[in-house]
């Protein structure tokens, strides 16, 4: 199947545009951060009251979600920057999605055949996840922290790892490409968020214990519990998908390589990351391992996912090396 070069080129432009828009969004999130510091105290107090719910519940009222508190009666400057940042993120995500779709149409296959395409899709999932989470949790001003790795990875993808649109080799011509790789993309993109949030949690805990540490950043972060909850919720959503992705990989390997598991480097590190995530889930049910240790484990687990993508693909030769 021949490749439609024109469409592929438009796709690449959209990719660049999306990355650029994310950079602008980051600037606005950061600006929001900078303005929020003072608003924090009163906001936290307000949230406390609602969660405590000691008072009789008004039968008719739907208890307001914590996230709505951010919409103070008077729209502050911080708030306006935050809203613009979100609007930009949405715009970026649309451009990003457009670039992925164009790649797929141009090549006439699922656009996940090499590292550039894989990374582009995973980063889209990360941004989409973030957009969803921002609606549920009051974490908008953390946007810059999530977009930073996204932009870095997109930059690497668009330069060092860039691959021109082309059909894929015979081993990849299978519907398992769609199933296995999309599960991997979905879970890796989702995992990015708890990976980042767990790091922020660690910063916050350090700051809470000693306000002199991370003084400016720590003061602006949401409380540690919210960060922990956000990381946990996203992880337990992504983990079954990751498991599913690994199992589909094994089923595909059985058809393509003659065995379902062979300790190929990619398989090995996927296994390691899976075990570390399982460790994260267990740590939350183990005395003395909740909180800080769990957050460290979660960050390490995401580190393994990234390691698997970059180091194993680029440095170590294995059966997955098609992705270079």
């Amino acid at each position: 199947m021949p490749v439609n070069e024109t469409l592929a080129n438009y796709g690449d432009w959209l990719y660049g545009a999306a990355a650029l828009v994310y950079v602008f969004a980051m600037v606005f999130y950061t600006t929001e951060q900078a303005f929020t510091r003072r608003a924090k105290k009163s906001e936290q107090a307000a949230a406390k009251v609602l969660v405590g719910a000691g008072a009789p519940v008004e039968p008719a009222s739907d208890a307001p979600a914590i996230g709505l508190i951010a919409e103070a009666p008077r729209r502050s400057r911080a708030d306006r920057f935050g809203r613009m940042a979100v609007a930009l993120t949405v715009l970026g995500a649309l451009l990003h999605l457009g670039s992925i779709v164009l790649r797929g149409v141009a090549t006439g296959r699922a656009p996940w055949g090499n590292m550039y395409e894989y990374g582009a899709s995973a980063m889209f999932v990360a941004v989409a996840t973030w957009l969803v989470l921002m609606r549920k949790f009051d974490v908008r001003r953390l946007g810059a922290f999530v977009l930073t790795p996204v932009v870095i990875l997109m930059f690497l993808g668009g330069t060092a790892l860039y691959t021109a649109a082309a059909p894929v080799q015979p081993a990849l011509q299978s519907y398992w490409l769609v199933i296995h790789v999309s599960a991997a993309i979905l879970s890796s993109g989702l995992f990015l968020v708890p990976g980042v949030v767990s790091l922020l949690y660690l910063v916050k805990v350090k700051h809470d214990a000693n306000p002199a540490k991370f003084a400016s950043l720590g003061a602006r972060l949401p409380d540690a519990d919210s960060l922990d909850r956000l990381a946990y919720r996203t992880t337990i959503f992504a983990f079954p998908i990751y498991t599913f992705g690994i199992i589909c990989g094994a089923i595909w390997a059985e058809a393509a390589w003659g065995r379902f598991w062979g300790w190929d480097p990619k398989e090995t590190v996927a296994f390691v990351a899976w075990v570390v995530y399982a460790g994260y889930l267990h740590s939350r049910a183990t005395a003395g391992w909740r909180g800080t240790r769990a957050a460290v484990i979660n960050s390490v687990a995401f580190g393994m996912v990234v390691f698997n993508l970059f180091f194993i693909n680029l440095v170590i030769a294995g059966l997955h090396s098609y992705a270079r």
């Binding site: 300790w263 090995t268 296994f271 390691v272 075990v275 570390v276 267990h282 049910a285 005395a287």
Partner: peptide, 25 residues
């Protein structure tokens, strides 16, 4: 649980060299 947790991490750690060093198999 604590032992299980530690064993899990040991398993992850022990599997890792297989990805970094060439393997006979």
């Amino acid at each position: 649980m604590r032992t299980a947790l530690i064993l899990l991490f040991l398993l992850a750690l022990a599997a890792l060299p297989g990805a970094l060093l060439p393997q006979r198999s």
